[in-house]
Every structure is written in structure tokens, then in C-alpha cells.
């Protein structure tokens, strides 16, 4: 497969553009550390949120003495807590992703790098995990611009290997990860076992889920002729075909049905679904398409 790992994942100009962006979560999640984001939790910040009755043990510094004077009751002032966001990037690095020019995996890495960068500069907690038939590698949570090199290093070293099993991988992921947040799933979703169960695991954890399906041009517009024996790159499964007009027509129909099914499944469960081709420049995807979808602003 043509590989483009030697190319930098992100170029400086693009990074500069990304600095203007931040990840948007449609849900507000709890974080472990105080971040730059409003949290559901009320806490210490300059922005007032509410009052509550004083109970023993409350910090006396937050007592509202004016209210005590007026109402003769003790109230504690509550402030909006600002906290960091969990940002999970799940990259499918099964063999099927090592296909196309640029390879789907490279494309996924670029998208992951761009989104991670946005997360890092906004002091979000970025976690990147790669999976094929299981969760293979995980970059522990990193924050801050200075961690960019770690992210890039991780992504650069990501190699395609093994067959894919979405269900098992995502099950493991949901069991391992603690915090809530945004989950970006970068995969071709071509799992013979199906994607439904896998996504259900994510939905159950109430993540803000984005499914970005990456397909190569060869998959979208097959350029094959004659009598062929198609060999599945992952499991060596063979399919003998005689390429003909009706067959190609049927294939495209099936592909559209597959995408349609996935989209419908996602829509019903509040998952954002986006299909992209490896031919669509990834910066355009990030700067334009993901903006439209509301993942970044």
C-alpha cells in the first residue's frame, strides 16, 4: 500500500489556523482538573452560579454576609466551575485502513493530529487510542500545547496491523476509560461483525460521539476489470467476481445502503456521522466540514 508516513502530519500554517479553533462538546462533562471550560460542577471561579444553604464544613470564605444581614440565614455562594474536557480519539489501525493513496490510516492520523492539536491548545485532556481487533495502543491523557510532540510521535508510530473488531475494541475502550467527553471514531467501519454493538457501548457511556468514516477512492469508485479474485486484506477471505456493469451497479448500491444504514443508526442515537473520502483534503475536512458539523468552532 502506498504510505505517506514520512510526510509531516501537520504543517505549521495549518497549525496556525487550528489555533483559532476549539472543540465543542454538546454535553458538558466533569473533569478531574480545573480547566478552561465550564463544568457542570459548581466551583471556584469568578462566574457566580447559585446559592446554597450553609452546612457544616462549607468553606466560610464563600458565605454571603450581605444575605445573612438581610435574611439572617447563612448562604454559601456557588461559582461556576471551569474544568478540562476529555477528548478521546479512536483510530482504527486494522489492515483495511492501510489502503488507498493516501492510505486511510494516514488520513485518519492527520485528522486525529489536527483535532488533538485543537484539544491541546484549549487545555483539553486528549486521549488517543488505536485499535484493530482489540485496543492496541493508547496515548495516556495529555494536555497543553507542549504535549503536541507526544501526540504526533504517537500517531507517527502507528502502524496498520491485524484484522478489525469494532465491537471488542470499543467494549474494552468503554470499560477502561473513566471520564466522559468527546469520542472521535476514525474508521472505515467495514466490520463484517457489524458496527451496531460497538457504537451502542459508546452511546451507553454518554459520550459525545463523532463517527468519521474514511473510505478510499477505490472503495467508492471501484476501478476493476475482468475476472478477479478479490482477497480481503485482513482475513484473506476471497470473493470471485466477474466485473460487469450490473455487478458494479450492485456494489455501489450496496455501499450507499451501508452508508445510509450507518447514518440512520447514528442519527437515531445522537451520534454525529460523517463520511469522507481519502481524496478530500483533510484540512478542508477539519476547517470546513467538522465546523459545519459543530465539532469545532
Amino acid at each position: 500500500m502506498p504510505e505517506t508516513t514520512s510526510q509531516p502530519l501537520l504543517d505549521p500554517q495549518f497549525l496556525h489556523k487550528l489555533e483559532q479553533l476549539e472543540l465543542v462538546s454538546r454535553k458538558i462533562f466533569l473533569g478531574l482538573m480545573k480547566g478552561e471550560r465550564r463544568s457542570k460542577k459548581k466551583g471556584q471561579s469568578v462566574e457566580f452560579a447559585d446559592y446554597k444553604n450553609y452546612v457544616k464544613g462549607d468553606d466560610l470564605r464563600f458565605l454571603d454576609w450581605n444575605l445573612y444581614a438581610r435574611l439572617d440565614r447563612l448562604f454559601v455562594r456557588l461559582y461556576q466551575e471551569e474544568e478540562d474536557l476529555h477528548f478521546y480519539v479512536l483510530i482504527d489501525n486494522s489492515l483495511s485502513m492501510d489502503f488507498g493513496n493516501p492510505s486511510k490510516l494516514h488520513y485518519a492520523r492527520q485528522v486525529a493530529a489536527a483535532l488533538s492539536f485543537i484539544g491541546l491548545v484549549n487545555m483539553d485532556r486528549v486521549v488517543i487510542s488505536a485499535f484493530n481487533d482489540a485496543l492496541t495502543q493508547t496515548l495516556p491523557a495529555v494536555r497543553g500545547r507542549k504535549s503536541l510532540w507526544r501526540v504526533l510521535d504517537f500517531l507517527q508510530k502507528l502502524e496498520a496491523a491485524g484484522p478489525s473488531n469494532l465491537r471488542e475494541s470499543l467494549k474494552t475502550f468503554t470499560m477502561k476509560s473513566s471520564g466522559k467527553g468527546i469520542v472521535i471514531l476514525l474508521s472505515d467501519m467495514m466490520d463484517k461483525e457489524g458496527y451496531e454493538d460497538a457504537l451502542r457501548y459508546l452511546v451507553a457511556r454518554q459520550y459525545d460521539i463523532y463517527v468519521i468514516q474514511i473510505l478510499s477512492q477505490e472503495e467508492l469508485e471501484p476501478d476493476v476489470l475482468g475476472d478477479l479474485k478479490l482477497v480481503d486484506i485482513e482475513d484473506d477471505d476471497e470473493a470471485e467476481i466477474t466485473v460487469s456493469g450490473p455487478l458494479i451497479k450492485r456494489y455501489k448500491h450496496n455501499l450507499a445502503a451501508f452508508q445510509g444504514g450507518l447514518q440512520e443508526f447514528c442519527n437515531r442515537r445522537g451520534i454525529s456521522y460523517l463520511m469522507t473520502s481519502n481524496q478530500l483534503p483533510f484540512d478542508k475536512l477539519v476547517l470546513s466540514y467538522l465546523r459545519q458539523r459543530g465539532l469545532v468552532r
Binding site: 467495514m190 467476481i241 456494489y251 455501499l255
Partner: peptide, 22 residues
Amino acid sequence: RLKRKAVQVPSTFLWKKSVEDL
């Protein structure tokens, strides 16, 4: 069956489905 040229594809998933449909 004709002697067919082997071609690697990311997934035979959709192809098989198409052939079966035909």
C-alpha cells in the same frame, strides 16, 4: 471458474454482498 487475477481489497464485505445479490 476462470483463472482469476488476485486483487487485494480492504474488505470483500460489500463485494460478496453484491455478488450474492446478483
